[in-house]
Design a protein around this nucleic acid. Sequence first.
DNA 1: CTGAGTCGTCATTTCATGGT
DNA 2: ACCATGAAATGACGACTCAG
Length: 465
Amino acid sequence: MSKNIWLLTEERPKKAVIQAILKRFCAEFGVEYVGDIKILPVISPEGRFQFRYKVIGFEAELVKEIFILPVSGYSSFVDFMLFYQDEQPTDKDKPLLLIEETKTDDVESRNTGVYQRCSKFVFTEFFYPNVQKIMLYNRQIPQKVKPTLTYIFGTRMLLTLDVEIIGKSLDPEIFRPFSRLDELIDLKNSMPKPYNGVPVRIKKEQDKIYISAKLEKAGRLAHDPNIGMVAIMAACIRKLGWSGEIIITKHGLADQSVVGNKNKFNFIAHEHEIELEGITLPNVTLPDKYWKVEKEKEKAGTIFVHVICENLVDGVSIYENHGGSERGYFWDHSTIPPMYEAVKKYTNREEYKSGNKEAIVYIPDLVLLDVKRNEIINIEGKTYKNRLKGVQELSNYVYFELNYIQHYYKDSKLAVGLVLAGSGNAEVAKQIPELILYLDDKGNITLGDRAPQLVKDAVEKLSSL
DNA sequence: CTGAGTCGTCATTTCATGGT
DNA sequence: ACCATGAAATGACGACTCAG
């Protein structure tokens, strides 16, 4: 047996994470994982990017080729879906693995470390029932030795839904699925009450279960950790056989108007029949599709540049922020091993808090180091549509350049420019003096006249792939 | 086309206070 | 004084949607 692997993701394909997933895939078939990998774009004979990447360097009889397919979800989307089949997946196909990744450990945050991502697994179950689900802890720090009750409770709920935990070692005596509803209720209710906030408590009556949990954030139904927590509690309660009512109390939501319509919680509440005390939830139906192939978003461009510069030429990423939510580190590669520093959010925190929104640190989307030429390339990513906004933003990075780039790379040259993506006119894009590269929705690649040599070299090499 | 509001994402930091 | 812990607050930012 030998098929292709397709990895669908909204994120930049990171080598370490891809390797962890391939390792897990191998375990599924009892095979040893071997190989150091490279990630390359797939280019047509006419030189167009095919909106998929190819992983090379992985040798196993099970696998013909490994492709990474950039996608976007219509609502709550897991970090990776793995399909094991020859044809490019469509929404009719069923994945082999669903993978959610996090860096947060128990010691950094109790609730966001375990609850915040739970809604993903509950949500995907509606689209892909009984597919193997995986929580991948991609920790940067050592695992906390003694787990907190919050972590134990959350993880046992994940195990109850057959989610597999990798990247952490778990004592099987403590971390086991709940087998009875009362076991789950008793554990939560036995936890010490917090010194502030709404204590989460479960009260079971004849045909009603009440869960107290705050769901309001900034006046709306948007309290992420608790949305995840309530979602998985309800899913577990249903799985353990409860068919009575589940009612959320002390949620802090004023009235229906703040509940919204297409909120992911509404879908979950609808499927698992969760009620909010004093509020009638909208009657929603799930989106009919879970994902689509992505060719238009701004990160299509920056990810493409990132991948080709790291895998085809001597480029190294020293800062990345594709999409804006992940933790941003600035890397100093002049030391061995390289050191990183978390980039500050404000030039002056007090000033920002007291209303001066200028006191923020403007950050670029991607910063590359051309090792051979000792040149830094500071990149802002934008859609073609927003290209002019992008040009304006290039002048915002003075603080970042001064305090990070030039601080750590004193003797390096600095280039600044724009990477565009999405449908548009290549001739118009080429007129922009700051243009480094433009990747349109057909996969055409246009280099800016003043693009740094690193990017030019990388594009040059594409023709030989 | 523009701008305001909504939504999803994810990590970091803070709060309040009992225990050591 | 400091640590641990359940829970909340903060906040950046792109993608959408919708009114005007």
